[in-house]
Design a protein around this nucleic acid. Structure first.
Lengths: 156, 156
DNA sequence: TAGAACCCTATAGCTACTATAGAGTCAAGT
DNA sequence: ACTTGACTCTATAGTAGCTATAGGGTTCTA
């Protein structure tokens, strides 16, 4: 019999914060664990594995909804796994779309950057000028179409 | 003298919603405009241009903070524009990082997908098996490092 | 028995919006 | 003059996936 783990121990074993674990519990990705006499959460090795699985999926940039779906398949081993493949296929497609989009962006940005080789006053700045001109030209598309995030995220 | 625009007219000219315009105003990207007798916002052509500029920046996936910075340069034409170039350089770097990251992801995902050619029961699913194994192996890195978003976004 | 280190819940914050509720305003038609 | 509909106003809550805080309780060690 292996001793049960506190939330902090589970956290350090899975490289994620206690807060995140409690969040996953609220979100239904992890079951509510047993509690100690002092109301502390007690985890076992099954939960270590489940959380590791979740974190691995997150490291593959899956959404919690996608992960929820995968967990359902894991929890019902007799179901047909074609849907697992389908889910993965779609995720691959999302990622591919995003790459395409970012490459286009990159091209535009580098072009824009090329307009300022010798920095002077902002009133003669080629970059600002061109952005203003481009803005006037366009009926600019919305920032990012569909199911795809921008390139910014704060550090953790 | 050109007639002033209502928020709805500004919205349709710039391809963005009235709500978004009010949001930009709250965020200090757009100045509080004049008001009519009935307390309606009244915009002029300078605001059309300013908002177009903002939307163009957003279509280049800049954050509102980055845009705020650019607007400050636009508003102070005598300042040196080296910082504009620097800002753009950093943005280009963010995008490049994100592309690299997504390519790695794509490789992993396709590999995983290859494990299920003939779908059967989930208890023999090569994908789920491998994800479980991989999760056990790793001290999985956090979902996305630094300043970078995942590939998912809901449609507008 | 004190203090440090952990745990608990509840709540607010982050980005860049979007969507609602509930009220007021305006122009056109009758 | 009055109604109808389209517009506008403010304020508030919701989205994803956490992170951070406040204000308490618990457990371990000295």
């Amino acid at each position: 019999m292996s001793r049960s783990l506190s939330i902090g121990e589970l956290a350090s074993r899975t490289q994620c914060q206690s807060e995140t674990i409690r969040y996953y519990e609220r979100e239904g990705l992890l079951p509510s664990p047993a509690r100690s006499a002092g109301n502390y959460r007690q985890y076992d090795s099954a939960q270590v594995e489940r959380l590791s699985f979740i974190r691995h999926c997150r490291s593959l940039d899956m959404t919690l909804d996608e992960i929820r779906a995968l967990l359902k398949f894991r929890d019902a081993p007799s179901r047909n796994c074609a849907e697992v493949s389908a889910l993965l296929d779609e995720h691959v497609r999302h990622v591919a779309d995003r790459i395409t989009q970012l490459r286009g962006l990159q091209r535009q940005l580098r072009q824009l950057r090329g307009l300022c080789a010798n920095p002077g006053n902002t009133d003669r700045c080629g970059i600002l000028k061109e952005m203003t001109r481009a803005a006037r030209r366009e009926g600019h598309a919305p920032p990012a179409v569909g199911h795809v995030h921008g390139p910014h995220r704060r550090a953790r």
